[in-house]
Amino acid sequence: MQASAANVGVRHRLADSPVVADAGDVLLLQTEGLTKRYPGVIALDDLTIAVPRGRVGLVGANGAGKTTLFRLLLGLAHPTEGRVEVCGIDVATDPIGVRSRLGYMPEHDCLPLDQTAADIVSTFGELSGLPARAARQRASDILDLVGLDEARFRPIGGFSTGMRQRTKLAQALVGDPQLVLLDEPTAGLDPMGRDEMLALIARLGSFEISVLMATHLLDDVQQVCDHVVMIDGGRLVVAGTTDSLLERTGLVTVDVGTRGTELVAGLQLSALRSVATDGLVEVTIDGDDDLDTLRDVIADLGLPLYRLSTRLTSLDDVFLSRAGSMR
């Protein structure tokens, strides 16, 4: 499958590299020096990224430039400088071709309230170029997929927030896109609705549909995305595979029972930085040599080793530290 193949081809690179895909990957999107200026505001500033197919989280605070990037990807705005390619197509030269391959789920309410979900989704299927009969059939299938099979003949006006979000996702999927742009897909959902929406998004990868999910909820990204692009103030903060970003703490947590202070002293002699907290020792590690040193110190001191684990940061930690250092 495309998504799997792309994922296999992804190299875990340094997280501060803007590029998260190998050159051989089929790229989902690629930007070069992408800049968008409005009067008095720089919405995007020299953004260069290359993202492979898969589920990609676009993370940033409100006003970070996520929606502007979506508008540029859809060809609804022209970049002030730079260029952007989606699914290998230059948006500037063929915006219609790009839009034919995309599905888009906006953050805000955007559905006609007096129409049924079946009508809306089949109409958007036709608008994506499907013949009328195929659009009706796919609307039925997709609404079934998102869990609205029973409610599809009810007007949207009577839907709950969760049902509206599912309808928005259905209209984005009905045209069988290669890529769906999801803008805050879990906004306004209760915890159960959020989990269900994330589960749906996670399934899209197995349908060979790539996802670019804009959100400020890093937990959502951590849960479903295999790549992350973080932007702040229109500038790239960090991009990489989710795993590579989470491994970047450089901290190893060691449980040696009550003899933590002995370990800290021993590590100090070996020039490894460590600190004892809450009965555990956190050791700063920079590569495999440091891990070997840690192992040797523990063995030389005859300490019991109950647990040794790499401490993963959350994406929140990554974002806050990286964005903070940029400001």
Partner: peptide, 21 residues
């Protein structure tokens, strides 16, 4: 679980979208 079936039929462009609207 009928899952998801990709669409493999013919697809129109701008003209089809305009006519659908």
């Amino acid at each position: 679980d009928r899952g998801y079936r990709p669409y493999e039929g013919g697809r129109g462009g701008r003209g089809a979208a305009r006519f659908a609207l």
